[in-house]
Computed example of a mutant assay.
Amino acid sequence: MALFALLAALLAVAALAWATSPLWRQARVPGLAAVALLAVLAGTLYLVVGNPDALDPAKRRPPETLPEAIASLEEALERDPSQAEGWRLLARAYAAEARTNDARDAFARAVALAPDDADLLAEAAESRALASDNRRFDDTAIDLLQRALQVQPMHQRSRWFLGIAQRQRGQHAEAAATWEPLLAIVDPTTAAPLREQIDIARKEAGLSPLPAAVAAVPAPDTAAERGPGITVSVSLDPQLAMRLPEGAVVYVIARQTEGPPMPVAVERLPVSALPTVVTLDDGDSPMPTLKLSQLDTVEVVARVSASGDAAAQAGDFTSAPLHAATGADSRVALLIDQVVR
Score class of each variant (00 low, 15 high):
271 V>N: 05
255 R>G: 00
181 P>M: 07
221 D>H: 09
198 I>R: 08
184 A>N: 06
147 R>Q: 14
259 G>Y: 04
170 G>I: 01
259 G>T: 03
169 R>N: 13
184 A>Q: 03
230 I>A: 04
204 E>M: 13
223 A>S: 15
239 Q>V: 10
172 H>S: 07
257 T>F: 04
170 G>C: 05
230 I>N: 03
198 I>S: 04
231 T>N: 14
266 V>S: 04
221 D>Y: 05
215 A>D: 02
229 G>I: 02
192 A>F: 09
170 G>H: 05
190 T>F: 07
147 R>E: 11
157 R>F: 03
232 V>R: 03
243 R>C: 06
260 P>I: 01
199 D>N: 15
242 M>D: 15
164 I>V: 15
179 W>K: 10
154 M>I: 02
251 Y>M: 08
148 A>Y: 05
203 K>E: 13
251 Y>Q: 06
256 Q>G: 11
234 V>R: 10
215 A>P: 00
222 T>L: 07
159 R>Y: 02
245 P>N: 12
238 P>E: 04
166 Q>W: 03
191 A>I: 04
221 D>C: 09
192 A>Y: 08
211 P>Y: 00
170 G>D: 08
270 P>K: 00
261 P>Y: 06
170 G>A: 02
250 V>F: 01
205 A>Y: 05
207 L>V: 03
200 I>A: 12
252 V>R: 10
195 R>T: 11
270 P>T: 00
237 D>T: 09
151 V>S: 01
237 D>I: 08
190 T>C: 06
178 T>F: 00
177 A>Q: 13
154 M>G: 00
231 T>M: 13
172 H>G: 01
209 P>D: 08
244 L>W: 09
212 A>M: 08
200 I>E: 14
218 P>F: 00
255 R>Y: 06
188 P>M: 05
171 Q>H: 09
171 Q>L: 13
204 E>S: 11
184 A>H: 05
187 D>I: 08
210 L>P: 08
183 L>K: 04
221 D>K: 14
267 E>C: 11
238 P>W: 02
171 Q>S: 09
198 I>A: 08
180 E>L: 11
246 E>L: 11
215 A>T: 12
220 P>S: 12
161 F>D: 13
195 R>V: 10
214 V>M: 11
240 L>P: 02
247 G>Q: 07
